[in-house]
């Protein structure tokens, strides 16, 4: 906003330049990857872009020199969905439990969120060692699932505690006063009110799992998840197919976030707009 004299102080330009630099760092790499994904058959891994084409996207679908991208995706997606569902279920029920101040609640809370601080790689090694010791097979659906939950669940808990902590208890009392059973109160009053929070937990659960590298590294077993596959490709694939894969997964993530935010928006609009 302009001051009354119309002159901006020098700090405005300094901060604007700083912000521009920040935006460049944020989106520059993403845009580079996006552009280079359309590299022609003779093009290299860096600029300039020659004879733009879609061949690297085609290679993703029919891998020759690249790894098993489709297979990795077919493991990452169900894993992320399972982590999402479990995060939501556990966070919501734990959130309800923590609304009553029970004995040892604080200790339990810190125990649950402490794994946020533990370094992911160390945790990954620990889980692998533990599975070996117990003679259990390490796979994406067992050890990696546990590792991902140790990461996604604390976030879910923190969100649900904040959401349910802010929920005025008089809504539930009003429902009780109007003859609602405990289950009807949860179904007809509490869950609809905290629904945006539940979507946030689901979103966190999904993306934290879908993107997770350090905690998956040693726990995924013999078959890679998508982040592991991309990492492998950076070491032995030297074609722009890497960029095509980056573009596809980024768009997939954005679509998902857009879907979640969109549904929150629709709910809020329904609540505030005249029907």
């Amino acid at each position: 906003m302009k001051t009354s004299s119309g002159r901006r102080p020098w700090t405005f330009y300094a901060l604007a330049a700083f912000f521009a630099l920040f935006v460049l760092f944020l989106y520059g790499p993403m845009i580079s990857v996006l552009v280079l994904a359309f590299q022609g058959p003779s093009g290299a891994l860096d600029f300039p872009l020659r004879n733009p084409s879609l061949i690297w996207f085609a290679e993703l679908a029919h891998p020759k020199g690249t790894g098993d991208v489709i297979g990795a995706f077919n493991r990452s997606l169900p894993l992320a969905l399972i982590v999402m569902v479990l995060s939501v279920l556990m966070s919501v029920t734990a959130g309800f439990a923590f609304r009553r101040r029970f004995h040892g609640a604080t200790l339990l809370f810190y125990t649950a969120v402490a794994s946020l601080i533990a370094p992911g790689l160390v945790l990954s090694i620990g889980i692998l060692v533990m599975f070996r010791f117990l003679d259990l097979p390490a796979a994406w659906y067992s050890s990696a699932l546990g590792a991902h939950l140790s990461w996604a669940l604390p976030f879910g808990l923190l969100i649900m505690f904040a959401v349910l902590g802010r929920l005025n208890p008089s809504y539930e009392e009003a429902a009780y006063d109007l003859g609602a059973s405990r289950w009807r109160t949860v179904r007809d009053v509490v869950l609809p009110i905290v629904f945006p929070g539940i979507i946030a937990v689901a979103l966190f659960g999904f993306t934290l799992s879908y993107d997770e590298f350090p905690r998956t590294w040693l726990t995924a077993g013999t078959k890679n998840t998508l982040p592991l596959e991309i990492w492998t490709m950076t070491t032995n694939v030297t074609s722009p197919a890497l960029y095509a894969l980056g573009t596809v997964t980024t768009i997939f993530s954005f679509l998902l976030i857009g879907l979640a935010l969109g549904s929150i928006l629709v709910i809020q609009r329904r609540r505030s707009a005249q029907r």
């Binding site: 005025n168 008089s170 809504y171 009392e173 009003a174 006063d177 109007l178 009053v189 609809p192 629904f195």
Partner: peptide
């Protein structure tokens, strides 16, 4: 009995 709550507690959704 029926109770009217201090902040009314109307269901926002």
């Amino acid at each position: 009995t029926a109770m009217m709550f201090q902040s009314y507690a109307l269901f926002p959704h």
